[in-house]
């Protein structure tokens, strides 16, 4: 099937819209679909994310003069010496402390590469202290509570609230 827009390439995006019981089908190739703003999630390479990250850093500091910019780019982790400049060239961190040291700068990058997620949910090492386990469980329950309220599932929300109170 040919793309309805350019009539040259093969249509690979097939959109069905139902409006007031009327079915409308659109068949487009990837290029035309993108032009028409149909969102096709593409994998954003990490390097691209990093470049936008660093340029936004530069913008933020440029108003405060060159010294601030230099200070920002030279900010190094006291444990391993990693800088954001170095990380931007090869997106690997230098030590576990970098996640704390550069957290404000890393957060947007983490959320974008992790589909908006910013909290671990999954396996926890068995050696983790009871206190930390509680913290993890609490954070999880709070996120579930938020979702339940959003979904207007108040019965479930009440249960979650009780669980949270029991842990606190």
């Amino acid at each position: 099937m040919l793309c309805q827009a350019c009539k040259e390439r093969t249509a690979t995006i097939h959109l069905t819209e139902v409006n007031n019981g009327q079915r409308a089908e659109t068949h487009l190739c990837q290029q035309c679909a993108q032009q028409q703003g149909l969102s096709i999630k593409s994998q954003i390479p990490l390097n691209e994310l990093l470049n936008t990250l660093l340029s936004s850093q530069a913008e933020k500091t440029s108003g405060e003069g060159e010294t601030a910019l230099a200070a920002g780019s030279e900010h190094a982790c006291p444990v391993c010496g990693m800088t954001l400049q170095r990380f931007a060239k090869d997106p690997l961190l230098g030590c576990e402390h970098d996640y704390t040291e550069f957290q404000p700068e890393l957060m947007p990058l983490i959320e974008r590469s992790q589909n908006g997620k910013n909290h671990h949910c999954g396996k926890v090492p068995s050696r983790t202290s009871k206190q930390d386990r509680n913290q993890i469980e609490l954070a999880k329950l709070r996120r579930q509570l938020e979702q339940a309220i959003k979904d207007e599932d108040y019965e479930h929300a009440a249960k979650l609230r009780d669980q949270i109170q029991a842990l606190e």
């Binding site: 997106p91 576990e96 983490i110 992790q114």
Partner: peptide, 22 residues
């Protein structure tokens, strides 16, 4: 002892593997 954080989970060199590391 694995490098583990209560918010971010298992800490990995690249943030794209963060959390479960799976």
């Amino acid at each position: 002892d694995y490098a583990f954080d209560s918010r971010f989970g298992y800490l990995t060199a690249c943030p794209t593997n963060l959390g479960t590391g799976i």
